[in-house]
Nucleic acid binder design. Structure first.
Lengths: 136, 136
DNA sequence: GCGAATAGTTGTATATTACAACCAACCGGA
DNA sequence: TCCGGTTGGTTGTAATATACAACTATTCGC
């Protein structure tokens, strides 16, 4: 029991450490886009056709905040809103280019960080992270 | 090679997902303390005697922002500054109580999330996260 | 002990966010 | 079909967070 609590404590510690640093890392890599704006753009890319209210729920933000952030992305030509009432959101080609460039860069950084890991370790890490996120 | 890139892509995806959600999760758990304030308090707890400039470096924030955030924590009686020029920071007993309560709660939530994992899986997850964070 | 570098504070402008009030579209039942 | 409730979105407003710049105080190397 004590040992298991230690392991839980260790996981908590490492997840916390990662969570605290990720914002600074992402913003350093993309100085022209705030972490929140980047997260929303990325979310719309992954979930094409999602709506502002979905983003608000996922990120725990007020709908007014999302409305303005999306507005800024639209003004910058990165996101497009369907006309009408409920507005499905889509990433524009320009937004997709920006995101794909950013992801290539991030993937390269990550690959460098994991270059001394074995294939098996990488696969295990991916799988455990996935299970953690899904909540299985 | 293609397979390895897929795994890197998967890890990136899961880490990104986690990073985007962690702020909302932490703030929901501690509505009286912003994510940034909580991170700073927690950092001072882990690194007793650290200085404002250290926090600024770690979190990529301006020193003025850190100065004001720490000021708020001091006013709330959670952090104490050494007198003089370079001010080593310490968590007060009240701050420690708040943090330990928060951590117990987080650890309980995490334990619930991992309750169906095997011991070996938990140990592996802790170890891989540690290696990831350290950059090994 | 002096000049340079470092740490911290404060003034100011901007950006982010929440809350509330509001508008528009959609939806069910009579 | 219409009407009221619900949901999604925008805008006004205030509070908060943050960066940058100017400044003060401290520390450090010589």
């Amino acid at each position: 029991m004590a040992a298991q609590e230690d392991v839980t404590q260790q996981i908590l510690h490492e997840l916390t450490l990662y969570g605290r640093r990720v914002r600074a890392v992402v913003e350093r890599a993309h100085p022209d886009l705030s972490f929140v704006a980047y997260s929303m753009l990325s979310h719309v890319y992954d979930e094409d056709g999602c709506r502002a209210v979905d983003l608000a729920r996922v990120y725990g933000l007020d709908k007014s905040t999302v409305s303005r952030q999306i507005g800024a992305l639209v003004r910058r030509g990165l996101v497009q809103r369907d006309d009408g009432g409920v507005q499905a959101l889509h990433v524009t080609p320009a937004g997709a280019r920006l995101l794909e460039g950013a992801r290539d860069q991030q993937r390269a950084m990550l690959a460098r960080r994991l270059e001394r890991w074995t294939d098996a370790e990488r696969r295990t890490f991916a799988e455990l992270l996935r299970r953690y996120n899904v909540g299985e």
